[in-house]
């Protein structure tokens, strides 16, 4: 029994160290984002300042076109999400519940794309989009992400588990395949759809390289790209960058607070092998 106790004390110490190291950087940036520049660059640095201000949050709006960036990021993230969740669940459903010639073949063809590194496709994608005149457009940001193998995989794994007679009964009632899908199957998949929506939103919101490549126009930049470009190696004013960082993290953090289990489910799903 003594061994177990020692083991749990040790693991508790480990956990508390990890806990502090995870929480502290966030707290520090959050606190510092409300300090004035003089307090931030003051040496030796103090954790708490004598007074706090909102000026960094107003300054970031003067430094970069924040509103524009936020709008762009929302359009990009929501656009990708709406289209890819629709397409992925369509495909996942068909692969799981319909017998058709080439089903296994198509399944593997789709899964293979999960292993295509972005490094090899980034230049050709840029070329395709510039040929189509889609650089610096929302369509160019959104359409290439219209479907993901991960989403298809996830939706398929869910639909595979549903009982066979569900669709049969509906067919006898005279519903066509689309009605069966929209009225019966999709409502059952609500948790998976939410998980996929969240993962899709998170992917686009946090994406840096892709939107940076496909937009050259300042007014088309997304939040991550805009921040990366002002917050790179040589920061002139720290306060506004901290405020910008906090703002960029806030939306997903809030969603996470309310929909934690869907985030966790999505990660857990990704590691499941059939």
């Amino acid at each position: 029994m003594k061994r177990t106790n020692k083991h749990s004390v040790l693991s508790d110490i480990l956990l508390i160290i990890v806990l502090i190291s995870v929480v502290f950087p966030f707290l520090w940036v959050l606190l510092s984002s409300f300090k004035n520049e003089a307090d931030i660059i003051n040496y030796p640095p103090k954790l708490f300042a004598s007074h706090y201000t909102f000026s960094n949050y107003t300054d970031i709006w003067k430094t970069i076109p924040m509103t524009r960036y936020i709008i762009n990021t929302v359009i990009y993230a929501v656009g990708v999400c709406a289209i890819s969740v629709t397409f992925d669940s369509f495909t996942g459903y068909a692969l799981a519940r319909m017998r058709f010639r080439g089903r296994t073949f198509f399944y593997y063809v789709i899964m293979v794309t999960m292993f295509i590194p972005f490094a090899i496709t980034m230049i050709p994608l840029f070329m395709e989009l510039s040929k189509f005149g889609m650089i610096n457009t929302y369509a160019g940001l959104i359409i290439p992400h219209a479907t993901t193998a991960f989403g298809i995989f996830m939706m398929r794994s869910f639909f595979v588990g549903l009982p066979e007679d569900l669709a049969e009964a509906a067919r006898l009632d005279g519903l066509n395949e689309f009605q069966i899908y929209f009225r019966i199957m999709l409502p059952l998949a609500k948790p998976q759809l939410i998980t996929l929506t969240i993962f899709s939103l998170m992917g686009s919101w946090n994406d840096l390289l892709y939107p940076m490549l496909m937009t050259t126009d300042q007014s088309m930049r997304t939040l991550a790209a805009g921040l990366a470009l002002i917050g790179g190696q040589h920061i002139t004013y720290y306060g506004p960058v901290m405020a910008g960082t906090i703002i960029s993290m806030l939306p997903l953090f809030v969603i996470y607070m309310f929909a934690q289990k869907y985030f966790i489910q999505g990660s857990a799903m990704s590691g499941m092998k059939e």
């Binding site: 459903y93 319909m98 017998r99 198509f106 794309t113 090899i120 496709t121 395709e128 395949e177």
Partner: peptide, 27 residues
């Protein structure tokens, strides 16, 4: 079902062809 399935998977297949397979070949 064995026919309509192709309509269901078509959008994804087109997207993957255009934005995954063709780019790899071009790259």
């Amino acid at each position: 079902p064995n026919h309509v399935a192709y309509i269901f998977i078509l959008p994804s297949l087109i997207a993957l062809l255009l934005f995954a397979f063709i780019p790899v070949v071009i790259g």
